[in-house]
Design a protein around this nucleic acid. Structure first.
Length: 298
DNA sequence: GTTGAGCGTT
């Protein structure tokens, strides 16, 4: 009974791949998903009826029909629509639960001439796309420009385009960047990892993997031990992760809350490996920095 | 009344 493999393919016409079964004869959905990312189940053609038939799936475990997998070729089920492949599923999920996805954020404009006004900025940036707001930062007392400002666009595409190039404004080259002042902003961070809050102790890593699979390929699940009522789930695609942020989802009958996984900072060398000067200068740099990390959960 | 890498009074 050991070393049993079942034959699985994406389509009946495709060459099957052998997937290992467990000692008790069942096959883990995660074993299938390891070869077919995004898979959510299996089906097969019943030799008698010639109809496709679903394989029983309980808590992430696939059970052999009639207790025997036989030599049939099992076909992978994908979420929502059997015929679609992962990329399309990712895109569809991202659009469906769209949130914070491709939202624009303020851009800092560096290097402005002292004379440039907000109207000048608006006139210039409007040539790229619709402008929501512009600001020129000025000295409170004399009203002199500090030589930088902010701009926000309606469309994310415009923002991307503007960041990608230098800008000649009133005779000076200027740069547009994402500001680093926002640590838990309404945009970027573009993490592929989500924070799953309000977890219960009976949720296993496999439970979470099985559940989140429906949204896209899951690359990692982390549940801190001892139990701390939260978990981290990492997707292959940041858009899937971002799209889920803010959602309340029901897992094993429990409402969990999804938010952005904040970067861990317990080891600054994870962020800057091989920093010149060693740990002392790196730590000193961070102490001096205005840059504040949010509290970490790890 | 200056300046030229940066990071946002309300």
């Amino acid at each position: 009974m050991s070393e049993l493999y079942i034959r699985v393919a994406e389509d009946e016409s495709e060459e099957p791949m052998e997937i290992p079964s467990e000692d008790d004869g069942t096959v883990l959905l995660s074993s299938v998903a390891a070869q077919f990312p995004g898979a959510c189940g299996l089906r097969y053609r019943n030799p008698e009826s010639q109809c496709m038939r679903g394989v029983r799936l309980v808590e992430g475990v696939l059970h052999a029909p009639e207790n025997d997998w036989g030599s049939l070729v099992y076909v992978v089920n994908y979420p929502k629509d059997n015929k679609r492949k992962m990329e399309e599923i990712d895109a569809a999920s991202a659009v469906k639960v769209k949130r914070g996805f491709q939202k624009t954020s303020d851009l800092i404009v560096l290097g402005l001439p002292w004379k440039t006004s907000e109207q000048d900025l608006k006139d210039y940036f409007s040539t790229f796309g619709e402008v929501i707001m512009v600001q020129v930062k000025r000295d409170a007392k004399n009203g002199n420009s500090k030589g930088f400002g902010f701009v926000r666009f309606t469309d994310y595409e415009t923002q991307t385009k503007v960041i990608a190039q230098r800008h000649m404004i009133d005779g000076r080259w200027c740069d547009c960047k994402l500001p680093n002042s926002r640590m838990c902003p309404d945009e970027p961070m573009r993490s592929r990892k989500i924070f799953v809050g309000r977890c219960t102790e009976d949720m296993t890593p496999d439970d979470l993997r099985q559940y989140f699979m429906q949204y896209g390929e899951v690359t990692d699940v982390f549940i801190p031990k001892p139990f701390r009522a939260f978990a981290f789930v990492t997707f292959a695609d940041d858009q899937v992760a971002q799209a889920l942020c803010g959602e309340d989802l029901i897992i094993k009958g429990v409402s969990v809350h999804i938010s952005n996984a904040e970067p861990k900072h317990n080891n600054i060398h994870q962020l800057f490996p091989n920093f010149p000067g060693g740990s002392a200068s790196l730590a000193a740099m961070f102490d001096r920095s205005r840059y504040q990390f949010p509290s970490s959960h790890v």
